[in-house]
Design a protein around this nucleic acid. Structure first.
Lengths: 218, 218
DNA sequence: CCACCAACATACCAACCAGTCTGCATGATC
DNA sequence: GATCATGCAGACTGGTTGGTATGTTGGTGG
């Protein structure tokens, strides 16, 4: 007598908006990866955070690795562009030191960022030694970041606002290292004071890059 | 008629040296954790790298977490003491800036360290937001590290070799952030040139901490 | 020489994991 | 209005995971 019941309870009317589904997946996956790391982020956990199913995920992404690549190239890279490269582009008529100080000061110190640290560092630390495909993609971001800073510094050297005795690429990498380093310290301390102290130190160092005779700090 | 055969093939004469067994486990676990991260390091993989069995592991360590704590407190902490705190102690009669420059220059840039980065940063990045017990133990190390540097700087200020206008704790944390930051960059780039450039930048910055009138770089 | 305990060895387990497979609804096309 | 590809839904699978239960030694005190 057992009638084979079809137990397919539709959860919601199908969206039929594949691009939107893809974006939802990407965002949820990013949050999970940001929190637990790529390796420890579970596919099922990601799906549970959305109303998307496994079928949809593997329709849009070939594998978990492919999902990771998309996170790096579409979300993490975009964050760097948004926070560093575009502001540097926008302030092409200003003193680059001022622009950099403004950018560093604008990095949010809210509890979320404090807890999770910098997504770029997180992924790089976890994956770059294990997975060459991840490493290459992450390095592109680091490179673009440093190159953006270096370009601004070179312009400043040309315009006379930045000391001419320093090598732009080296100084740019130094700034990146400082930011990333304090990001690590603040994340471990889970304390906004650590981060604010770091900002202060970095800003002070940035000021020391001004060309002698250039405007002093306002 | 099936006689229950005892299939216990002894692998080697029992060592009967529990402390040695514990150390072997710790070292193998450290290597695995260093490579793959704590969460992704598998118990079975660790055991496969030694000739120790699961029974022995769970005799010496209550859980995987306990094993992680031991790695932090007995291996990672010891590395920091060995590389930073003891050299600073030993050079109590020297200029602390010279001592710090020597220490930074002595950080190995070989392919192994380059690949894996700094174990302290690796663990902190992975665990500090997920697991309070890990975070607390790691923070103790960071704190001791910074405090060791700060003490040396204070002594230098007292003796007149270090600028008096800087706050020792802040400067110490800045140095730590720089080292950790370049550690991240070098690990991602997988390139010794990045690390050497970082050393150069850090040494240059350290030199700028000398008190005016104090001996110039030799 | 026997009891006992530290120090393991090994089989086993439930939970979880990334990934697959089959099926089905829906809008576009002819 | 039949056909078909797109865009999924969801059960299932083989392998791996940390952890446990139970057994087995070698040394040692009595």
């Amino acid at each position: 007598m057992l009638v084979a019941r079809k137990n397919l309870k539709r959860r919601a009317p199908r969206l039929r908006d594949p691009e939107r589904t893809r974006q939802r997946l990407l965002q949820a996956a990013f949050r999970e990866v940001y929190r637990y790391g790529f390796q420890s982020a579970g596919i099922d956990t990601i799906l549970a955070a959305t109303d998307v199913t496994k079928g949809a995920l593997y329709y849009h992404f070939e594998s978990k690795d492919a999902l990771g690549y998309a996170i790096i190239e579409e979300i993490v890279a975009e964050m760097t562009r948004d926070r560093w490269l575009r502001p540097l582009q926008r302030s092409k008529d200003k003193d680059p030191i001022d622009a950099l100080i403004g950018i560093v000061r604008a990095i949010p110190a809210g509890p979320r960022n404090l807890k999770g640290g910098c997504p770029l560092v997180n992924l790089a630390q976890e994956m770059s030694q294990l997975h060459e495909q991840f490493r290459k993609r992450l390095e592109r971001i680091f490179h673009a970041w440093q190159e953006g800073i270096a370009m601004a510094l070179r312009r400043g050297q040309h315009e006379g606002t930045v000391r001419r005795d320093l090598v732009a690429e080296e100084t740019a990498s130094f700034l990146v290292a400082m930011v990333e380093g304090y990001e690590v310290l603040a994340k471990n301390a889970q304390d906004a004071k650590v981060w604010n102290m770091g900002i202060g130190n970095i800003v002070g160092w940035l000021s020391s890059l001004r060309a002698p005779g250039s405007r002093k700090r306002g």
